[in-house]
Design a protein around this nucleic acid. Structure first.
Length: 423
RNA sequence: GGAGGAGUGGCCGAGUGGUUGAAGGCGGCACCCUGCUAAGGUGUUAUACCUCUUAACGGGGUAUCGAGGGUUCGAAUCCCUCCUCCUCCGCCA
């Protein structure tokens, strides 16, 4: 959510930004509603003031007769208030609705473009493996090594669910632990968060409402939803709080399951584990001062690169263009790992600086030395999304004999050097 | 699941219908005193929004005592719903 005052004072810049991001938001209407709201609040304040004065004078009045008279007057007067309140509530509802459509402002260096085809590759790392044999994709590998069982997942739960079996279980736990260790070393506090969150937290982080393309599973007859990422719980944990400046930056490494309905994503590249309804993820999340957030964003990107370099998986870094940023991100980088099965790079991590866009809705502030509280900045980044990491890992490390080599850094965590066909 | 109790400002804690945004204490800040240290004195110390004014400081107003609703001329105080925490009982890993 953008600041109303900011929108009012920077109408043209906000409009321009919407255009760059390909977002249809009625900035003019927001301003109009905001003006209307201000006027109404003024009127209401005035009415309440009169009412309060009345009530106080009644409290002071000792003469019973005069008192009764005042009470009657006051009673009549107060009838004017509810109508205005209703009017204001309606205006605020509409204002909020419109305001939420307005995306965050954009980093001046973010590439301008209409969709993901205009994202800008910043650099590549690693060498794409050349196989002397017909490379298989992770679905085939997972099947032949009995690592991934989509049939069982479909039977018990539905399509796009899966069992991990055998060494894949060790691989998941190993990847998680590897990522956590990397983050702990850099001062991120590990946290296992709930896999469900109240609507409040989802609204605050901007995951709902999101119209028909919502990604979120809700639990019927409750105000709970399955989280799509630990970002929701990690951000929500500090809602309505005021932090000390000394406490910042705060870094978290959140481990959770992630659940996504993937509504409307049929037909998109989604074979195997690429687009599934449930996966495990270690998520980085940080709360920073406004001055710290750019540097923190670069840090998170560096951590992601370190993690994939450690795994020895070739990747490229992509600077996400304005049209593909989504609502909250001020700037976003993705890591796309090489996936031999598709012969292309595929997204494995994503890190965003959401500046104060998320903090505003969640009301998370900090107190700068000797001054009033102000909104802090929040950032998030994927350390490991296990399902996608598995794709790149199985496919890049497959061997001609059908086995899969385990990257050196994972050997201590997994307890073996390769995965051989089960017998 | 059953029965009770509690939620007040950065923290502790008073306050059961009328100048209470809220006593007192701690902590913070400013100034004074002090040879240093320690102690002491005075003052100040919430947030959001609306509005006026200013270069800035600031002034006025509204709301906020877990959240939301209600009663009342007037609610931290009464009623309802919800959330969270604590105690006891039951059940379960």
């Amino acid at each position: 959510m953008l600041d109303l005052k900011y929108i009012r004072e920077n109408v043209e810049a906000v409009k321009e930004n919407c255009k760059n991001r390909g977002v249809e938001a009625d900035v003019g209407l927001v301003v109009e509603l905001a003006d209307r709201r201000s006027a109404l609040i003024s009127e209401l304040n005035e009415l309440r003031h009169e009412q309060n004065q009345m009530a106080k004078s009644i409290g002071r009045e000792r003469d019973e007769e005069a008192r009764q008279k005042l009470i009657e007057e006051s009673r009549a007067m107060k009838e004017r208030i509810p109508k205005k309140e209703d009017e204001l509530a309606e205006i605020e509802r509409r204002l909020r609705e419109e305001q939420l459509n307005i995306p965050n402002m954009t980093h001046p260096d973010a590439p301008i473009g209409k969709d993901d085809t205009e994202n800008v590759e910043i650099r590549r790392w690693g060498e794409v493996p050349q196989f002397e044999f017909e490379a298989r994709d992770h679905v085939e590998i997972g099947e032949s090594l009995k690592l991934i069982d989509f049939d069982a997942g479909a039977k018990t739960t539905g399509s796009k669910f899966y069992f991990l079996r055998g060494d894949a279980v060790l691989l998941e736990l190993g990847l998680v632990r590897y990522a956590l260790d990397a983050l702990i070393e850099r001062g991120y506090e590990p946290a296992i968060t709930p896999d469900l969150a109240r609507d409040e937290a989802l609204v605050g982080t901007g995951f709902i409402p999101r119209g028909p393309e919502t990604q979120i599973y809700s639990v019927e007859n409750t105000d709970l939803s399955l989280i799509a990422t630990a970002e929701i719980t990690l951000a929500g944990q500090l809602a309505d709080e005021i932090l000390q400046e000394d406490d910042l930056p705060l870094r978290f490494a959140g481990l959770s399951h992630c659940f996504r309905t993937e509504a409307g994503s049929h037909g998109r590249a989604s074979r195997g584990l690429y687009r599934v309804h449930q996966f495990t993820k270690v998520e980085m999340f940080a709360f920073t001062t406004p001055e710290q957030s750019d540097a923190m964003h670069e840090e998170m990107l560096a951590v992601e690169e370190d993690i994939f370099q450690g795994l020895g998986i070739p990747y490229r870094v992509v600077d996400i263009c304005t049209g593909d940023l989504g609502g909250a991100a001020y700037r976003k980088y993705d890591l796309e790992a090489w996936m031999p099965g598709r012969g292309d790079y595929g997204e494995v991590t994503s890190t965003s600086n959401t500046t104060d866009y998320q903090a505003r809705r969640l009301a998370i502030r900090y107190r700068p030395e000797g001054s009033r509280p102000q909104l802090l900045h929040t950032l998030n980044g994927t350390a490991i999304a296990v399902s996608r990491a598995l794709i790149s890992l199985l496919e890049n490390y497959q061997q001609e004999d059908g086995s899969v080599k385990i990257p050196d850094v994972l050997v201590p965590y997994v307890g073996k050097k390769e995965i051989q066909p089960a017998r």
